[in-house]
């Protein structure tokens, strides 16, 4: 049967497309219909404020997501490493991400994961850190971002910090509510 394909370009093209479509449909279209958690925001979560969205746009513009993931995986090491003051970080759920477009799950950890970073550090820490990360963390390879601190009279910095402080807060995972401003 396949021998005929040697001579018929049309069948090669149609066959290649059909074979492709089987897997494409079952792995991209089926899951968004079968997995409700992919499209339903987690209960108790709220939409981003305008300021937080502007901050997220800076996160996107500067490519923060190339080096920072936002996902606590189903690995014990992840929950321990990204925990804080003796409390383990909760594992990420699909519902946490529904309001993110573009998504910021990331793929590479040149720097640490940020899914639970909201409230770990205060404003002044972030300001110094963005200006030059090595002032606070010797050995860091994060680029300096002095323009984030100075642009728009400091408004960019405020927006970005507002966004960062939301990360993980939907889960309200600190028993003592000891989040930094």
């Amino acid at each position: 049967m396949f021998h005929k394909l040697d001579f018929n370009a049309g069948w090669v093209a149609v066959g290649a497309l059909l074979f492709f479509l089987v897997g494409a449909t079952l792995t991209t279209i089926l899951p968004q219909m079968s997995e409700a958690s992919w499209t339903t925001p987690l209960e108790g979560s709220r939409a981003y404020s305008e300021q937080e969205l502007r901050g997220k746009a800076i996160y996107q513009r500067e490519g923060c997501w190339y080096c920072h993931t936002q996902q606590i995986r189903t690995l014990e090491a992840d929950t321990k490493r990204y925990g804080w003051r003796g409390v383990d970080a909760p594992i990420s759920l699909p519902g946490e991400y529904v309001r993110d477009a573009p998504h910021v799950l990331g793929t590479r950890r040149a720097g640490p994961d940020l899914a639970r970073v909201g409230g770990k550090y205060d404003k002044s820490w972030h300001k110094t850190h963005f200006n030059n990360p090595r002032d606070l963390v010797p050995g860091s390879v994060m680029p300096p971002f002095p323009w984030i601190v100075t642009d728009n009279g400091g408004q960019d910095l405020k927006n970005l910090i507002a966004y960062i402080q939301t990360l993980g807060r939907t889960r309200d995972w600190r028993p003592d509510d000891d989040y930094e401003e």
Partner: peptide
């Protein structure tokens, strides 16, 4: 395949969010 994959990855993807978009 390129046509299908490129259109999914650059146009259709903009209509999705979160994990769905990541997928």
């Amino acid at each position: 395949w390129t046509a299908a994959v490129y259109i999914t990855g650059n146009f259709l993807v903009m209509f999705a969010t979160g994990v769905n978009q990541a997928n």
